[in-house]
Amino acid sequence: MDKEALDRVIEKVSEKLKAEGGGIEVIGVKNDMLYVKLLGSCETCPMSGLTMKNWVEKTILEALPSLKGVKAV
């Protein structure tokens, strides 16, 4: 996986989440699956599941099609 491309897309996602008081941290990659942790207000937000699936995962997979998926831990 292209680390620079990963860093760019995580920064893009992070900027949007910061605007809402949240954030994202990369935990690691295993078997082409990216593991992330939502931070700040995203940790307790009742909409975080939808944000994760409909925006975070979609944005990351569009930028990094070699990944099979993105999971929040």
Rank of each mutant, 00 (worst) to 15 (best):
V9A: 15
L34R: 05
V26G: 05
S48V: 13
E25C: 05
E62I: 04
G22A: 10
K12L: 14
R8A: 14
P46S: 01
K37N: 09
T59I: 03
K18P: 04
L61G: 02
S41A: 09
V29S: 10
S48Y: 15
I60R: 05
V56E: 01
G40M: 09
V9S: 12
I27R: 05
D2M: 11
E4M: 12
K18N: 14
W55C: 00
D32V: 02
C42R: 01
M1P: 12
T59E: 09
S14W: 01
E25Q: 07
E11R: 11
K58I: 00
L50F: 13
L50S: 08
E15C: 08
S41P: 10
K53F: 08
L17P: 00
D7M: 09
V29K: 12
V70I: 08
K3G: 00
V70K: 08
V26C: 11
K18M: 05
K37R: 08
I60S: 01
K68M: 07
G23S: 01
S41T: 12
Y35I: 03
G40L: 15
V26L: 07
K58C: 02
M47A: 13
G49C: 09
G40E: 05
A5E: 13
D7K: 07
G69Q: 06
D2R: 06
G28F: 05
D32Y: 01
N31Q: 12
E57C: 00
C42Y: 04
A5H: 14
I60N: 01
N31D: 15
L17C: 11
P46K: 06
P65E: 11
S41V: 04
K16F: 04
T59M: 09
K12A: 09
V9T: 13
G69M: 03
A72P: 06
L64F: 02
I24Y: 06
N31Y: 11
L6T: 08
E4H: 12
E20I: 08
L50W: 13
K12R: 11
G49F: 13
E11T: 10
K18V: 11
V73H: 09
C45V: 03
M1H: 10
E62F: 02
K30H: 12
S14N: 12
G49V: 14
L67Q: 01
E11L: 12
W55M: 03
M1K: 06
N54R: 07
I24H: 03
D2Y: 12
V13C: 05
K68R: 13
K58E: 10
T44E: 06
V36I: 14
V13E: 08
A19D: 15
K71Y: 13
V13W: 12
K71L: 14
K12D: 14
K16W: 10
V70C: 06
E25A: 06
S48K: 15
I10P: 11
G21Q: 09
N54F: 00
K37G: 02
P46V: 03
I60T: 07
V70Q: 02
E25M: 02
S66Q: 13
K30T: 06
S14I: 04
D32L: 02
C42E: 11
A72L: 14
I60A: 02
